Simulated assay, not measured.
Amino acid sequence: MSLLAVRGLGISFGGLKAVHDVSFALNAGEIVSVIGPNGAGKTTLFNMISGVYLPNAGQVTLDGEEVTGMRPDLLATRGLSRTFQNLQIFQQMSVLENVIVGFHLHERGSVLSDLLGLPGSRRRSRASAEGARELLDRVGLSRAAEREAGALSYGALKRLEIARALATRPRVLLLDEPAAGCNAVETEEIDRLICEVAQGGVAILLVEHDMKLVMRLSNQIVVLDHGEKIAEGDPATVSRDPKVIEAYLGTNAEEDADAHG
């Protein structure tokens, strides 16, 4: 049984089919990328899977449990977290505080205990701070822990958002254009981090326009065009599909696939 399964998912806006009858599955430790031209429905698909949009058709299951249309916060408690194309960072909070926010999802304690600063509350706070520092070290931001998040570079903010998503202890992580706007060095850091997370057993669903990164990282690729799935398979197979080349990738895709095996 797949960890995440999408079956016949679809949604329309004002009579326009934004996504229609899309199906695929994702297993633990696997990286699946969703690609396609602008307007293909990639982020809309993410929004349905992560509970931002309620689909008109189809279903989403997480570890066998149907979670179609479930609120994002409830999905997070079940192990599905995401990042956004447009950064969702608390700019005026510290880098460390941004990650600590992710740990609050699984904290167990009363409001009264927190208000009174009881021992249990203090222990939870210390544990969250320690966990947050470990994640910052993992994403290469430990030296920036006390800095205001808004002072970081764009690439560093991308890694910070991933760190906060990891703080929720996901089993499935949706990454919406994690390398967008990053330079070559920052993209390489994102690449390393995604591989490391997947090797830890987390299933990763990725939307990304950097085709070299997609071809290098992905176990499987799902291709959308005008809201419909036109191809699915491993990078080499997808890059040689005539429908994919016509819709999006172009002839350079075959060169990328040859270069990476």
Score class of each variant (00 low, 15 high):
Leu115Ser: 03
Ala129Met: 11
Leu152Arg: 06
Asp210Val: 05
Glu228Trp: 06
Leu105Cys: 10
Ala151Val: 11
Ser81Lys: 12
Pro119Asp: 02
Thr83His: 13
Ala179Asp: 05
Gly58Ser: 09
Glu246Asp: 14
Pro37Tyr: 03
Leu9Ile: 14
Val172Met: 09
Ala253Glu: 03
Ala28His: 08
Val202Asp: 04
Lys158Val: 07
Lys42Gln: 08
Glu254Asp: 09
Glu161Ile: 00
Asp114Glu: 13
Asn47Lys: 11
Gly201Trp: 05
Thr68Gln: 01
Ala253Arg: 02
Thr237Asn: 06
Gly51Phe: 09
Ala28Val: 13
Leu16Gln: 13
Gly79Tyr: 06
Asn27His: 15
Leu62Asn: 10
Arg108Asp: 06
Gly64Leu: 02
Ile31Glu: 03
Thr44Trp: 07
Val22His: 12
Ala149Tyr: 02
Gly201Ser: 11
Ser125Cys: 04
Ser121His: 04
Glu208Asp: 08
Glu255Arg: 13
Arg82Tyr: 10
Pro72Val: 08
Val222Phe: 07
Leu141Lys: 08
Leu105Ala: 15
Ala144Gly: 07
Gly233Ala: 08
Ala151Tyr: 12
Glu107Thr: 11
Ala165Ser: 13
Arg147Tyr: 02
Pro55Met: 03
Val139Ile: 10
Phe103Glu: 01
Ala231Lys: 05
Thr237Lys: 07
Asp114Thr: 09
Leu205His: 06
Ser113Glu: 08
Arg147Ser: 14
Ala25Ile: 07
Gly69Trp: 07
His260Met: 13
Gln92Ala: 14
Gln85His: 01
Ser2His: 07
Asp114Ile: 09
Glu66Gly: 07
Ser113Ala: 15
Thr168Gln: 11
Gly117Gln: 05
Leu116Gly: 01
Ser128Pro: 01
His20Arg: 15
Phe84Ser: 09
Ala165Val: 02
Gly131Leu: 03
Phe13Ile: 09
Arg192Ile: 00
Ser121Gln: 05
Ser33Asp: 01
Gly36Ala: 06
Val244Met: 09
Gly250Met: 00
Leu112His: 07
Leu74Met: 15
Phe84Pro: 11
Arg71Gln: 15
Asn56Ser: 15
Ser81His: 04
Leu54Asp: 14
Pro170Arg: 08
Ala156Ile: 01
Asn219Tyr: 05
Lys212Met: 08
Val222Lys: 02
Ile194Asn: 04
Val111Pro: 00
Val223Gln: 11
Ala184Leu: 10
Asp241Pro: 01
Met215Ser: 01
Leu45Ile: 03
Gly201Ala: 11
Ile204Ser: 03
Glu134Leu: 15
Gln85Val: 00
Gln88Pro: 03
Ile11Thr: 08
Ser23Arg: 02
Pro72Trp: 11
Ile11Tyr: 11
Leu115Arg: 09
Lys229Leu: 12
Leu157Asp: 04
Val101Arg: 00
Asp225Pro: 11
Phe46Trp: 07
Ala165Asn: 07
Asp256Phe: 10
Ile49Ser: 12
Ile89Trp: 02
Arg159Asn: 07
Ala236Trp: 13
Thr251Met: 13
His104Leu: 05
Gly140Glu: 01
Gly8Ile: 06
Met48Phe: 01
Asn252Thr: 15
Ala144Val: 05
Ile190Gln: 10
Leu152Asn: 05
Asp256Asn: 14
Lys243Ser: 13
Arg216Ser: 14
Gly79Pro: 10
Gln91Leu: 10
Ala253Met: 07
Arg122Asn: 00
Pro242Phe: 01
